[in-house]
Design a protein around this nucleic acid. Structure first.
Lengths: 200, 200
DNA sequence: ACTGGAAATTATCTTTTGTTAACTAATGCA
DNA sequence: TGCATTAGTTAACAAAAGATAATTTCCAGT
């Protein structure tokens, strides 16, 4: 019936040995939310501490730079968590906009509420750790990529490791996630195609 | 006597209300470690899951790129935590080298041991969360910087926010942390100086 | 204070990216 | 199906970064 809850119950069992029947206190506090394509999940300046598990669809988080261009921080899809780090980590208004690129179904909880639940049910705590570790792993990987690789190498890496994503969202969002302009990405693609060297 | 333990005891009290006298089970498992300047904390390929609080000194984590150049992921100093994310998050051999740039004093614990302690003393759990959140906040900030700003802007930001660091370590390490070459950083500095625009 | 080695700057040249604008291809919607 | 809008490519030029090498500055150890 609810695929997200099944997935997360399994996760909770694998991580902490919590039986699905004992997860009621947690999932009672979650809401199922639908977004249309183009709809906003978190607005610029929002202070709500939303945390969500994506059941279906894609969400992009981005900000608008001084020169008017958009900078994409990340793009997340089904099976991943999404949250505004500004509100959750820093208790600051969100500096980023979170918007659905496709119709989205989310299982959502307020982080303050989650903290209350965790206070009463510390057995769920491994789930928070898992969530934090996953976020950390992802952002460290991206940092490594920025520090170690050129834009072209980062694009090759993205194509190699997340072809589904590259194939599912417009190139201009991919470009802004790589820290370059759409024009520059187009040239990179051309160079790659001319070299014929599409792998590695 | 031991400044690190005092600091962390205060942190644990502020975060979780744990009295300093009740922290013995945790700190009994920590070791005080000294490193000379240039000495290695974690070697390339190490699988040890070391986690440390820096009491004094600077540690740089870096890797060697295909072209032989070094890429610095981060530089941490007193008051910060340091750990190999490869070993702790992924249980993989470390892809980075962690080396002291100055004489260093650490308060060190093995992450596996920490997990055992946390199992028996869940009241310390907020400390792990704090550690993870701090790491996450730092790497997200760096990601934002890479996605939103040019190398010159990133350098200005670094000078503005962490002048102590810029002033304490050789420029070449700063450059590799910004994802550029030392030559390029030198040109950025020259441009900044010529414009006279040393602020913002 | 002297000196050898490392760090930083400068110069030259090549490659890549940014910017702007024109043009073509793709997409969605009536 | 046709049309309007958006996405992607190409072109031309300016600005910045990479690579290499020479030179100067800075530092540490004697």
């Amino acid at each position: 019936m609810n695929a997200s809850i099944d997935t997360l119950q399994k996760l909770l069992f694998d991580l902490a040995g919590v039986m699905p029947g004992d997860t009621e206190p947690l999932f009672a506090m979650t809401n199922r939310v639908s977004l249309e394509a183009g709809e906003t999940f978190i607005r610029l300046g929002d202070v709500s501490r939303k945390l969500a598990f994506i059941e279906k669809g894609i969400i992009r988080s981005y900000t608008v730079k001084d020169n008017g261009d958009e900078a994409t921080l990340f793009i997340r899809y089904e099976g991943q968590f999404i949250a505004s780090h500004d509100t959750i980590i820093h208790r600051q208004p969100s500096g980023f906009i979170y918007r659905a690129l496709e119709p989205v179904i989310l299982l959502q909880i307020d982080y303050d509420v989650l903290e209350d639940v965790l206070k009463d049910h510390p057995e769920y705590e491994p789930l928070r750790n898992f969530f934090l570790m996953r976020m950390l792993a992802e952002s460290l990987k991206m940092m490594e990529s920025f520090v170690c690789k050129s834009p072209e190498e980062r694009y090759r890496e993205l194509v190699a490791e997340r072809f589904d994503l590259v194939n599912r969202v417009p190139d201009k969002y991919i470009a802004s996630m790589l820290g370059i302009t759409p024009v520059s990405l187009s040239r990179i693609r051309k160079r790659m195609f001319m070299k014929g060297n599409l792998s590695h």
